[in-house]
Design a protein around this nucleic acid. Sequence first.
DNA 1: TATTAATTAGGACGTTCGTTCAATTCCATC
DNA 2: GATGGAATTGAACGAACGTCCTAATTAATA
Lengths: 199, 199
Amino acid sequence: MNKRHYDSEETRSLIADKAARLFAQKGFAGTSIADISRESGCSKGHIYYHFENKEKLFVYLALETMRSWKERWEAVSVNYGTAVEKLHAMASFVHNNYKTPLLQAGQELGSNPATSPETVTKLRGLASTPMQAYYEIFKQGMETGEFDLREEELESTGFLFGTLLGGLCQYLYTMENEPLEALFQRSVTIFVHGICRKG
Amino acid sequence: MNKRHYDSEETRSLIADKAARLFAQKGFAGTSIADISRESGCSKGHIYYHFENKEKLFVYLALETMRSWKERWEAVSVNYGTAVEKLHAMASFVHNNYKTPLLQAGQELGSNPATSPETVTKLRGLASTPMQAYYEIFKQGMETGEFDLREEELESTGFLFGTLLGGLCQYLYTMENEPLEALFQRSVTIFVHGICRKG
DNA sequence: TATTAATTAGGACGTTCGTTCAATTCCATC
DNA sequence: GATGGAATTGAACGAACGTCCTAATTAATA
């Protein structure tokens, strides 16, 4: 017995895909249901068949995006040994998989006084998923002696690394892929070595 | 002869102030003329007496913000000698004076297909003002031998530094001042020294 | 005090927004 | 091939949007 009639499930994820791209590109308020309808090719009414409302749709997208991001990173990261290798891998991974603009849209929605408290709560913890992943890498680097870090510097280091990668994601839609990838990689180099002339 | 009747000029800059804060906090689409009217305490019609429309208002704010930012930085920066000192000063300056969220709102507006081409053009060059300032510092550091940089790395270094500071500005409205300032300063330290175990 | 031009308010406009809902189409099953 | 529930549509709703227009208010000048 097949529970799936029509292409309902596919339609749902098509809507989700298109909506995620639109939210990432134009922000929460900047994206209308009509936009999503046009882009996905299905009626406005049908969007409301799959999702309760615009806010819930966004929260679903944000949470799901982060869950899948974490899952895929954990699958990828085992292929890299040292912390430095992992940082480079992470830079590429974020460049290709991260939907930071979606996080920004989340901030936009979260800071709006009209947003429901439950939504704000759910959105609050969103950024902690990638931050945790960054933290783990720097922790490893500290433990193996690759990095010269003190315990209390770990969190802020991961935070800043994530902020830089996140900032670079702003250029995903306006910059060529190749030079952007170079910037992602150079971010790692700078974090690791700095730019100071050594003794 | 006084050209200023009433407090028109003051009212205009009051509108500009409130509008800038709102745009920075809630984005371009997320901020309504009614919001600005409520916040500034003057009528919607009066906003249109001072500004042609919402788009032009935003462009004015963005350009004016950047112009004033540059002016004030140039006044401040002469108090610092070395490139490292200037980087720390810049971090503090951005923390206290930069309206990066306004730049993000600019990207939001600029990437909207409905936005007029002239506006897009004006917005395009916005980010280059601070980037130029960052570039200058790293160039100085390279020339004085403080930094170990090659000519062709200058631009990307300034770009990344600006991206990191800009990313940190996202937390202006959600984080306490003191720990945020610490993150700004630590950004400089990491950029300068990196985190790799030396020798 | 009367006149005038600059300033401000507030409501009306057409449009677009998020949302709802009745009607229709589709497919699995009988 | 008829039936029923799931999938999908498209029109319609009130609210909110950006913008415009007219009327009221103000302060300077005559």
